[in-house]
Write a protein that binds this DNA or RNA. Structure first.
Length: 194
DNA sequence: CGCATTTGACCTGCGC
DNA sequence: GCGCAGGTCAAATGCG
């Protein structure tokens, strides 16, 4: 499929690009994922809550979608069911404080921190049982913005970074992030008001 | 000096 | 009730 030459405004833009059902690649365009995308969306792409299930970007050979119930760590790390439930409960706790959507994906990158156009403040680091690599916790440093993200390296292949966004920005990205790449929609058009 | 990061302590919920 | 694990807090530290 042909991506219109629209600048990516933020990491969320790219996520939405992949998640938009209107952009679901046709069968004739399975290898059309642009090579100049700044990061590689690989076999880890999950959506939850308000993101429709059919929205996942499925067709590129390097993209594999996990079932929605297999959110973040559980799918990526093949943890036990009990760990999954614990994970979800942790999410519940979190959502009590701020009802939020979650978007998790895996990128291949040397850098843990991808420039998504927002300013993040690190507030925690934790070694988790499901992975030998520590998990880093970030919070959007914009005043009043409750968006959080978790970043950790993949258990089996540390060249991959697993990022989980939680929540919705209540402001625009302070600066453009991934430029020269292609997207068609901004998160705000999907209720992700960034 | 101000701000971001680090890191150990603490909190919360679940399973046993 | 206790221990475990994930998530968060906040004092200490580092850096520009």
């Amino acid at each position: 499929m042909q991506f219109p030459p629209v600048e990516v405004k933020s990491m969320f833009s790219l996520l939405i690009m992949f998640s938009s059902s209107s952009l679901m690649p046709s069968s004739s365009s399975k290898n059309a994922l642009p090579e100049d995308v700044a990061f590689e969306v690989d076999d880890y792409l999950t959506f939850a809550d308000d993101v429709p299930e059919e929205a996942s970007f499925l067709s590129h050979p390097s993209v594999h979608r996990y079932p929605l119930v297999q959110a973040d760590d559980c799918a990526a790390n093949k943890t036990k069911i009990t760990d999954c439930s614990r994970s979800k409960d942790a999410g519940k706790r979190s959502s009590k404080r701020s009802s939020s959507s979650k978007v998790a994906f895996k990128t291949k990158s040397e850098l843990e921190i991808l420039d998504d156009g927002y300013k993040w403040r690190k507030y925690g680091k934790k070694t988790v049982k499901s992975s030998p690599n520590p998990r880093n916790y970030y919070r959007c440093s914009s005043e009043g913005c409750q968006v959080k993200k978790k970043v950790e390296r993949h258990r089996d292949d540390s060249s991959f970074v697993i990022t989980t966004y939680e929540g919705t920005h209540n402001h625009h990205a302070p600066y453009p992030a991934i430029t020269q790449h292609r997207a068609v929609e901004t998160p705000s058009s999907h209720g992700l008001s960034c």
